[in-house]
Design a protein around this nucleic acid. Sequence first.
DNA 1: GGTGATCTTGAAAATGAAATTCAAATTCAG
DNA 2: CTGAATTTGAATTTCATTTTCAAGATCACC
Lengths: 166, 166
Amino acid sequence: MLQKRIDDQPSISPEMVREAQGILHQHLKKVGLKQTAQRDTILRTFLETREHLSTDELHRLVKKKDPKIGYTTVYRTLKLLAECGLASEVAFHDGIARYEHQYNRRSHHHMVCTDCGSSVEFFSNEVERLEQDIGRKYHYLTTRHTFQIYGVCEDCRKKNGVRRLV
Amino acid sequence: MLQKRIDDQPSISPEMVREAQGILHQHLKKVGLKQTAQRDTILRTFLETREHLSTDELHRLVKKKDPKIGYTTVYRTLKLLAECGLASEVAFHDGIARYEHQYNRRSHHHMVCTDCGSSVEFFSNEVERLEQDIGRKYHYLTTRHTFQIYGVCEDCRKKNGVRRLV
DNA sequence: GGTGATCTTGAAAATGAAATTCAAATTCAG
DNA sequence: CTGAATTTGAATTTCATTTTCAAGATCACC
């Protein structure tokens, strides 16, 4: 899946990787699980990405570093990372679970082109505030939200003329 | 799945059902498909609900009216209804596709309790405006958006004490 | 450093919702 | 009416996800 960058951020630094590993190791200890080389490799690979990765896509990247690591381990580690806040699920609408790392990144949302599948990220403080407001109003203790906009990007509109105006 | 009503709206009127059937029939004709008693029954049953229904849940309701209607037909009809705008998918986070009818209802969003699965609906003009704004900014022709808030409702917090603060 | 209870791993199997298949039944244009 | 085309629904297939299990790795305790 393509992604158009709106703002280029530097790729993650070694210190950040170390800090993220610290977070993971602390979480593992807390819930009585063990550190393993596989889990560290998967975390490092994950941090190096800036896409929205399916388990399968991450597994493919991980195998380049250690071909012996299996799909199941990637799948389980991704859940662990989500548990300790290092990863978060982004559900697009295609029946595949995707994850992205939130490490040192501003909270953001996605606008997805329903034609070509490319996406842009955008930021909105209003949405964050809205989560708080609505939660307070109906007495929910909110933990997170999802906000996606679907539409057709400029390129696809040019490519397809007016046919696709839905 | 439970749903706490925030505002009770009258259930759908006969005229609205007729109008909805008109929309479906027109759509069927347009794409070269045929009217059937099953499709009408499924539409009528669907319009009588105000929940977010999975295919399975709607199938169960439909069977009360006509036990011979199968799951597959409900599944396919729901896709048809979505095609002509009578139904829209609401993706919560549990891997099950749900639909709700938009017929004569204000655009709204959902806040879902991650503990008990109940949900409240809320309205926000800000979110609608945001779709427009962001679309304009990045030159997307937007068609729709999804916005869900996840959290723990008051009841579950009381029930579970502080254990579940996530 | 051992040691062993516990956890991890990963291939394979199971699961389950969604999607497809196919033969019999139904629709509808002419 | 007729028949070409579509629909139906049980059964099957698909495919991402989740679980299982036996062999291997980890680490708390000595």
